[in-house]
Design a protein around this nucleic acid. Structure first.
Lengths: 206, 206
DNA sequence: GTCTATACTACGATAGAC
DNA sequence: GTCTATCGTAGTATAGAC
């Protein structure tokens, strides 16, 4: 479909060059159509930008369906099961951050976080709010000693460990002495993330 | 000085709009000079961009002088002192990420990490390499059980917890239910970061 | 629906006055 | 060293053909 092709190209270009740096001409050309198609389908450059945010949120939600499942029925979970769910969710997030496919849209999101616009509202509501709150509910089971405020802070810090794999990718590569993160590095980082997370989750009882 | 004013303005504009999105005209205008001054002093837009990277690395190094001090003499430290040094360094990094002043140049760096250019080489060599390696040496004292490879991964994951306070600022604010991170939130996040880090550093012995 | 053609604005680089 | 003026290029938006 033309609209989808335009959006996919646009996500890459907006992520790479930013809203101002990307050009509708180049996006249209790379999508094999004329620039005025963007005006027709999305009303202009800004409409296309917002459509990109919606598209990312929708695709991410679809792709992370099993992660969502782990966060839904949190009512009657025992502690060790909740811990395994947390570890699985974090590992899933790390896998996404490590996966080459996330490069394009992750750039888009990281850029939005630096200077949030209307597009960020759609991204947060569409793909972040539910997972973060679900993770927080699991934490409530695992660390009942922590007040809700501390729990919310803890959620973000734990996700930060995985976020750096994308947002600080260049530094991670340098620090590990590699040009890119391959299978070997992914394995290393994921197992270290799991170990760290276990320490943190058990922190209240250590 | 005119050159410094140009650089400071440019860091803000490049960080906000990216290399292509920022305009030399706007940078010059906001600095109270003509666009051709950029050509004269820096050779052009790209020269100004690289000068920004050098400026950031230099200022960050100056400002973090005490953090560097904590990482130099690592030879004969006992374990609990090394732990306190690690916690202090991480807290210093978190403080920088939380400080409003870092907003401008942090945006510049986060952007560079997404699509590294020559400027990233200067940033890494000028302000990241030494701190990350120093932190790694402290970790070698604290967690002698960990191989060097695992240690390097651990360093990055730990810094990730603090990095999200800048790179994922918009999400952190949303998750905490605030519009911006004030004193209250800073205190909360820093103490939770300290608690997490203690758990991780003691992980090998728990 | 998708194209071409056009109007208008802004960009970076550079030459030359002072 | 800093300015103004100008050139060539590229941006978005829009009108109108098909």
């Amino acid at each position: 479909m033309l609209q989808e092709r335009l959006i996919q190209t646009a996500i890459d270009q907006f992520g790479r060059f930013g809203f101002d740096g990307a050009s509708t001409r180049a996006i249209a050309r790379a999508s094999g159509t004329a620039m005025s198609s963007i005006t027709y389908h999305f009303g202009g450059k800004e409409g296309l930008y917002l459509a990109c945010a919606d598209y990312i949120a929708q695709k991410a939600t679809e792709q992370n369906a099993q992660g969502y499942a782990l966060m839904q029925q949190t009512a009657d979970l025992d502690r060790s099961t909740a811990i395994e769910h947390c570890l699985a969710i974090l590992d899933g997030f790390a896998l996404t951050m490590l996966h080459p496919d996330s490069e394009g849209w992750a750039r888009f999101i990281v850029r939005e976080q630096q200077a949030p616009t209307e597009a960020f509202e759609r991204l947060y509501g569409g793909m972040m709010k539910a997972p973060l709150e679900g993770f927080g509910r699991l934490l409530a089971i695992i660390r009942p000693d922590l007040p809700a405020r501390e729990r919310r802070a803890l959620v973000m810090l734990m996700f930060g460990q995985a976020l750096i794999l994308r947002a600080g990718r260049a530094s991670v590569c340098k620090a590990l002495g590699v040009d890119s993160l391959g299978e070997r590095e992914a394995k290393l980082l994921r197992s270290q993330l799991r170990a760290n997370s276990l320490c943190i989750l058990n922190g209240g009882n250590a």
